[in-house]
Design a protein around this nucleic acid. Structure first.
Length: 410
RNA sequence: GGAUGGGUUCCCGAGCGGCCAAAGGGAGCGGACUGUAAAUCCGUUGUCACAGACUACGAUGGUUCGAAUCCAUCCCCAUCCA
């Protein structure tokens, strides 16, 4: 007999808050439930935070339920103030449409949209043309300003200021849930725990407008054991788009998670059986590295495909464990223009290969003893290369212990 | 609309005429130690043609030999009043 997906999610550590735990548990066990998760397209790629939500969605879909992906082209036009310190930068409808298209592509790898197994909609379709006065009379009347102001998620904003514009976000999101309930019989909204307030708003609205029960469920945010948000790298967020975060960097991010966080990551981000997750997570001392390798490989494979995952792993082995196959190491190809511009100064090459953010930065790194070429420390800021050295396989530049780049002539 | 207090480098936050590329903290980066972990300690953190120069302290003008610091106007934010 198949396990109830509610139990699966609970066991893997997804669940955070639920409006009606017992009822929902029972419902998920006996019938096909249509549920939704909203994603505001505020960037041109999903990042790892979105991925946790997609994982819950995937678990639900595997259990036979029907997901609706809601692309928030309408809600992102305003920007969610929940848990934010400042107002978001405003984006144009064109930008949002472009971002939504990017999201769409990335999602199909994890969620099966064939044959109506999942639905994708954009809330701009109904939000863009709303009439303000009608909306306020139909929907606005159900929201208490007093209650909204006491919500935890606006706390930071209460200190710094909150506009009416942003306050309307919650009404928009609540209205989405109502709309999806009417259109598709959607009875459950899920989302990150920071969305609790907004989700409840929708469930309440459905109860009042339709006299129907709707469920709210939030999932854990991806945080480290000391409570910091995960998914930040030196270059920014851990994006799922390999143009924004190379497969190698993606792999390395997971290969380097803290000991305390491996088990959680395996549970939330992979489909490995929980027995295996627990076994890997409890490996003692140095052996925990095995768990990190599994995490990095499995997740990279899920996101970027097996071929790319193998390349990233091969490169990692070549650089860190004395592996022989160096072909997959991240490479910076120098054009004749680059070569001419750099004059083959190491300082300039560090900038071209993106290991340093500026020449000053490159100088500092060299002075601090953090730059190596083919494992030989660069001693002088003025060091130059010979043309012959960048022919063929080129040379491997290293910044610190973990940042590598092969520099060679194109 | 009125009163008051503010806008400083990635973030918080000191400075309040020259000694300021700007204290301190956070975060990042590099080094040491390690297990490509955490913790800890040390260094570093505007740019460049790098013992020198240039650009920066909300915006624009002004006063001064000299301004982040003084003055004027403007823009934004917070608090209280309406």
């Amino acid at each position: 007999m198949e396990q109830n997906v509610y139990d699966v999610l609970e066991e893997r550590g997804f669940l955070k808050q639920c409006s009606h735990p017992e009822e929902l548990h029972e419902l998920l066990g006996k019938e096909k439930v249509t549920f939704y998760i909203g994603f505001d397209p505020t960037a041109d790629s999903l990042h790892i935070g979105h991925y946790v939500a997609l994982m819950t969605m995937a678990h639900m879909q595997r259990a036979g339920h029907r997901p609706i992906v809601l692309l928030g082209t309408g809600t992102a036009f305003i920007g969610d103030p929940s848990g934010k310190t400042d107002m978001r930068t405003l984006m144009s409808k064109e930008q949002l449409a472009h971002n939504a298209a990017c999201f769409q592509k990335q999602m199909s790898r994890l969620i099966d949209f064939s044959e109506g197994k999942a639905i994708m909609v954009q809330n701009g379709d109904w939000l863009y043309d709303l009439n303000f006065l009608d909306f306020m009379r139909d929907i606005g009347v159900y929201f208490s300003v007093n209650r909204m102001l006491t919500a935890e998620c606006y706390k930071q904003r209460m200190e710094r200021g909150l506009t009416f514009f942003e306050m309307s976000y919650m009404l928009m999101q609540s209205y989405d849930f109502l709309e999806l309930n009417r259109r598709y019989g959607c009875t459950l909204e899920m989302g990150g725990d920071d969305q609790w307030n907004n989700i409840l708003g929708g469930a309440d609205l459905i109860r009042r407008k339709e006299q129907k029960l709707a469920y709210a469920l939030t999932t854990a945010l991806l945080t480290t054991s000391d409570g910091k948000k995960m998914g930040k790298t030196e270059k920014g967020a851990v994006w799922l788009d390999k143009e924004k975060c190379s497969v190698y960097d993606f792999y390395q991010y997971w290969r380097n998670v803290g000991d305390q966080d491996v088990e959680k990551c395996l549970a939330l981000l992979t489909f490995l059986p929980m027995d295996e997750v627990r076994r890997l997570g409890s490996l003692p001392g140095e052996q925990i590295n095995e768990a990190k390798r599994v995490l990095a490989f499995t997740l990279t494979k899920q996101v970027h495909g097996e071929e790319e995952a193998i390349k990233a792993q091969t490169a990692a082995e070549a650089l860190f464990s004395g592996g022989k196959d160096q072909s997959s190491i991240p490479t910076c190809e120098l054009s004749m223009d680059d070569i001419a511009a750099s004059g083959l100064r190491v300082v300039d090459l560090l900038v071209i290969s993106k290991l340093a953010s500026s020449k000053s930065d490159a100088r500092r790194l060299i002075q601090g003893g953090g730059v190596f070429i083919d494992d030989v420390k660069v001693e002088s800021v003025n060091q130059m290369l010979e043309t012959s050295e960048i022919e063929g396989d080129g040379m491997i530049f290293r910044k610190g212990k973990k940042s590598y780049c092969r520099v060679r002539k194109a």
